[in-house]
């Protein structure tokens, strides 16, 4: 199409093109929404049998078990208080650690990149801040022992501190 064709001065020409454009965009919009619905109907995540981590809290915390969904909500700060009213203080491990990769995949059910995007959305909308990061199991234990409302995760087999206890995870760990 030549440039002269793109120069439209006729009122009727403009209106016709505009109507065609509206019709086309409406069709594409509807197709897009249908595509969304089809994608949502597909696929459940695969399940794994054994978690590669331990979820721990302070011994002063009366909670003994949580579902993986509950733990996910606590770490994403969708729930910020324990049933007692005490503030939940989740603590994360280093992005490069294998235990964080396992926890993120099996509990948060996302890749670390997706979780980072979630926190960017929360940070820059002024809604929340991500949990503090500790770089080793020992540091996580220290944090949990120093904060009665804390919840963290450790590599499976890590020796616990005196004021740390393991929570039973209910439901399927994916």
């Amino acid at each position: 199409m030549g440039s002269a064709d793109r120069l439209v001065s006729s009122r009727w020409g403009c209106n016709l093109r505009s109507e065609r454009a509206r019709g086309r965009s409406l069709r594409i919009y509807v197709l897009g929404v249908v595509a969304i619905a089809l994608l949502l109907a597909s696929g459940a995540p695969r399940a794994e049998d054994h978690p590669d981590f331990l979820v721990v809290v302070n011994t002063a915390n009366p909670v003994r078990s949580l579902t993986t969904e509950d733990v996910s909500r606590l770490f994403l700060k969708k729930v910020t208080a324990w049933a007692s009213g005490q503030q939940v203080l989740p603590v994360d491990q280093s992005e490069n650690s294998s235990v964080r990769a396992a926890f993120t995949r099996q509990v948060l059910r996302r890749k670390i990149a997706a979780v980072k995007a979630y926190w960017q959305q929360r940070i820059f909308s002024g809604r929340d801040l991500p949990p503090p990061v500790r770089t080793s199991d020992a540091e996580v234990i220290r944090y949990v022992e120093a904060n009665p409302g804390a919840i963290g995760y450790l590599s499976n087999g890590t020796a616990l501190g005196e004021k740390t206890k393991v929570l039973e995870l209910l439901g399927t760990v994916r």
Partner: peptide, 13 residues
């Protein structure tokens, strides 16, 4: 608005 986010897909309208 509607938004769907997964590791692979993002759909927003």
């Amino acid at each position: 608005h509607v938004e769907y986010l997964s590791d692979t897909w993002s759909l927003r309208s």
